[in-house]
Design a protein around this nucleic acid. Structure first.
Length: 575
DNA sequence: GCCGTTTTCGGCCCGACTGTTTTCAGTCG
């Protein structure tokens, strides 16, 4: 049983305990432990063998033992007993928007409802509305939630959510009375997938702004509307929340609505220890404690300063050690978009790209980059019109000719996204690979190999002297396809040992090497390269996603190859 | 169930909005 399976069981235990009316803090302990486990950069095996489980935040002796039992014996009597005491369908009911543990419990106890089907029927018969604590509105809301269950529950790619949020933000900033507005939530934290869009605005006339928001064409349905908070469903099912605060409280509110929840809990506890209660409105004197520490009008950095912390960038706010590091003034200086001088993973019409070589180059030049690497697919990727050795060498020659002609100011490197074949060999012979400036080795086929085989296969490719970097490590497509099972830590170690780079693929669907592994990797000395996997001139913009993920993985400028100057890159490739 | 520079017991972040209530519980973030 792996980390994610155990975390899922802990989440389920949390729900089951909630349904039984257990102590909410006990429930939270299971959720915290699940998250802590999932976000740990150590393997489950290492955590167990070296007894390091209790070193993770929120995991004590009891939960460490439960995790160990699940990992080794693949079952947990406590969980099985708990499961037996609750009808199976109930877990599905609690996922319906608006239904929490209390309501689900009441439905079960009073109407014997334990499946979605039974719930639908009861609503249709008007039996829900007659229930104490329920009513006609609740019944209608349940029916609504049931009808849109799939679209409402869906998560969204960061890029898609960001594009929509930017549109709303730009319009909002023009609304009369809006003094400031920012995107908050997981979108601001740069998480790879997003549940809903959070937008914060400052205005002294919140009512008119709320009225404006709820009347927009992009709004499909208003879920709730109050003086400071309005929630809507956008067309397509994405949820957007708008919060409005007075201008003086903007910094506090921005910090709060950016989250993460766990980060907030952490800094609020820290604040309480210092004698102040922190909320989205400001600091308040906790009972019997010292005086309020800051002026009312404060920016985020002021809040962190009062708490004795360095400013923590939004991407790091996941309660994964950033508060402790900020306390010791040991936060890294995160890489920025402007540090990027070019990318290497770019496709053209020669394989499956939408734009020609020259179009891809000139689009990169317009971004102000110093260099661009071209890496079309290799011959085994039939589906992507992969290049034969002859076609590849012809392309290389064309690139060299372009270089000599000085048609472009930007330097062009010729490379290949070369398939790692099922046995770990590369898709081109050595004498072809030697003619290239760089080689990205990627897995595109035989994705169903077992973990051991695929790890060995990737490591064999990494060890090939012609390989510069490893492409999308697991091949995952977020929200579409799970990645292959790879022993990521082993691959990272092999890359470090062989002085090879691991790509951070900024394509919105990929966003890997996953930031949860990045941090430990670069601490051990891993070098990365942030690429976009561009298949058209518009995809160069995905560099922003790549940088997001890099920042979430605590990357500094020096940890990514493509922050280096052209001169340094040429030197690096010659090694 | 976790955790400790006030604590090994007694806390555990804090508030908005809805709907069903006539003062608040439930859900959500």
């Amino acid at each position: 049983m792996d980390k994610s399976e155990i975390a899922a069981i802990f989440e389920e235990i949390a729900i089951l305990l909630e349904l039984q009316g257990a102590n909410p803090f006990r429930v939270r302990a299971y959720r915290n432990a699940a998250r802590s486990l999932l976000n740990s950069d150590k393997s489950l095996k290492e955590l167990i063998q070296e007894g390091k489980l209790t070193e993770l935040a929120g995991i004590g002796d009891d939960l460490a033992e439960k995790i160990t039992t699940l990992a080794l014996k693949k079952r947990l009597p406590f969980y099985e007993k708990l499961k037996k005491s609750t009808p199976k369908g109930i877990l599905k009911l609690i996922q319906i928007q608006g239904l929490g543990p209390k309501k689900v419990k009441a439905l079960y106890e009073k109407l014997k409802i334990q499946t979605v089907e039974q719930l639908k029927k009861a609503c249709a018969a008007g039996r829900i509305a007659r229930l104490k604590g329920f009513g006609a509105r609740t019944e209608k809301n349940i029916l609504d939630a049931l009808a849109h269950r799939e679209t409402y529950q869906k998560r969204h790619l960061w890029w898609d959510a960001w594009e929509r949020a930017e549109e709303i933000l730009e319009a909002l900033k023009k609304v009369k009375g809006v003094k400031r507005a920012e995107i908050a939530g997981s979108l601001r934290r740069g998480l790879e997938t997003i549940g809903d869009i959070d937008i914060l605005a400052a205005s002294s006339n919140p009512k008119s702004v709320m009225d404006w928001f709820s009347r927009q064409d992009f709004v499909d349905k208003v879920l709730s509307k109050g003086p400071t908070k309005t929630s809507v469903k956008l067309e397509g099912g994405m949820q957007a929340d708008l919060r409005i605060v007075p201008e003086d409280e903007f910094g506090f509110a921005l910090c709060y609505f950016t989250g993460s929840k766990e980060h907030n809990i952490k800094i609020r506890s820290l604040s309480l220890k210092k004698g102040w209660s922190l909320s989205e409105y400001g600091f308040e004197k906790a009972k019997g404690k010292g005086p309020s520490p800051v002026k009312k009008k404060a920016e985020e950095k002021d809040i962190y300063e009062v708490l004795g912390l360095s400013y923590i960038p939004p991407e790091m706010r996941e309660n994964l050690g950033e508060v402790e590091a900020a306390e010791k003034r040991k936060l890294p200086t995160l890489i920025q978009l402007k540090d990027i001088r070019g990318t290497f993973h770019n496709h053209t019409t020669a394989s499956d790209g939408k734009n020609t070589l020259k179009e891809m180059i000139s689009a990169a030049e317009r971004l102000g980059w110093e260099y661009i690497g071209i890496s079309d697919h290799s011959k085994s990727s039939f589906q992507a019109n992969g290049l034969s050795a002859e076609r590849l060498l012809a392309q290389t020659e064309e690139i060299q000719k372009l270089e000599r002609s000085k048609e472009f100011k930007i330097h062009i490197f010729s490379g290949s996204e070369c398939d790692i074949l099922a046995d770990g060999k590369l898709d081109f012979p050595d004498d072809v690979l030697e003619k290239l400036d760089f080689v990205i080795a990627s897995v595109h086929t035989s994705l169903s190999q077992d973990e051991k085989t695929i790890t060995k296969r990737i490591i064999r490719a990494i060890e090939h002297p012609a390989v510069t970097m490893l492409g999308h490590i697991t091949g995952r497509l977020l929200l579409k396809r799970e990645g292959t099972k790879v022993d990521v830590e082993k691959v990272i170690d092999a890359c470090i040992a062989n002085k090879k780079i691991i790509e951070i693929n900024g394509n919105p669907y990929r966003m890997e090497l996953d930031w949860r592994y990045l941090r430990a990797g670069v601490q051990k000395g891993l070098l990365t390269c942030i690429n976009t996997d561009a298949h058209s001139i518009h995809h160069h913009a995905f560099i922003r996603c790549g940088v997001n993920i890099a920042r979430k993985g605590w990357l500094e400028k020096k940890n990514a190859l493509n922050t280096r100057t052209l001169k340094e890159i040429i030197k690096y490739f010659k090694k």
